[in-house]
């Protein structure tokens, strides 16, 4: 059940010049992987900001976000001991089981929610993490500590393989397609490529989508996502995680 809660910040650190990691005391909130929090970012911003949940452990929840605008800039400046007005946990997340073997494919700020999946199926996952450039890399050590293997790609070749994550994912699937599912989070073009790839290799695929959001709980219907059957679902309530086969990738 979602709730509104004032959550104390117990840690705020920079992962790189763009990304912030924050740990919150969330009390009785028990999130699933791939869900998100809807956070009030000061009085100047009318709308809350949806921030994906990176990890959770007994009352402590970690979020990782990039500073993209005024709201996230405000959020990044909050210090340890301050409180945030949080709505959550929200949305339909990734369903992983501890014995599953997952191919995790993350791009940029889509990477953090996959860490929870990696930890849930500890030791069984292969992670393919992509960044625009090496200075945007994050969470590599943490993925390495709970994944069977971690591969890195960067658009400019400054870290790992030069190129996109779907190329690396293809190489992996060509030799080993015995995955429970591909779980992907990142920019829409990346998700589209990964969805095609998973279909080609016959592996189930779940994708975490993004859209401009209003209420965050499924009431205002603004965060529409076009489905393959012609209907429009909503990222905040039906998603953010959808079956890749459900999504209309050509919309």
């Amino acid at each position: 059940m979602p709730m509104q809660r004032q959550c104390k910040i117990v840690q705020n650190s920079r992962l790189n010049p763009y990304a912030v990691s924050m740990v919150l005391e969330v009390g009785e909130m028990v999130p699933g992987t791939g869900q998100f929090l809807h956070i009030k970012c000061g009085d100047g911003q009318l709308l809350r900001r949806p921030i994906s949940i990176c990890d959770w452990q007994e009352g402590l929840l970690r979020i990782v976000f990039e500073v993209r605008g005024e709201g996230t800039a405000w959020l990044a400046e909050r210090r340890r001991g301050e409180y945030l007005d949080v709505l959550g946990p929200l949305g339909h997340g990734f369903e992983t089981n501890a014995k599953g073997r997952y191919l995790l494919v993350g791009g940029g700020i889509g990477i953090p929610p996959l860490l929870g999946c990696a930890r849930n199926a500890s030791g069984n996952c292969t992670a393919v993490l992509g960044f625009r450039s090496g200075d945007r890399a994050m969470l590599l050590g943490e993925f390495a500590s709970c994944c069977a293997s971690v591969r890195v790609a960067s658009d400019d070749g400054s870290m790992g393989v030069r190129g996109f994550v779907d190329q690396v994912a293809r190489e992996i699937l060509e030799t080993d397609r015995d995955f429970t599912a591909v779980l992907a989070c990142g920019p829409r073009p990346m998700l589209k490529s990964v969805a095609q790839l998973a279909r080609e290799f016959g592996v189930p695929c779940k994708v975490s989508m993004e859209e401009r959001m209003g209420c965050g709980v499924g009431a205002c219907l603004v965060c529409a996502c076009d489905m393959a059957d012609g209907t429009r679902k909503h990222v905040c309530k039906d998603g953010p995680v959808f079956d890749a086969e459900e999504v209309d990738w050509d919309a």
Partner: peptide, 23 residues
């Protein structure tokens, strides 16, 4: 009705614009 394509919301100074389209 399925309503209009996204984006359907934009934040403005002390307001929001929406174009849900009666979904």
């Amino acid at each position: 009705r399925e309503g209009n394509p996204a984006p359907r919301i934009a934040e403005t100074p002390m307001g929001i614009l929406n174009s849900v389209g009666l979904q």
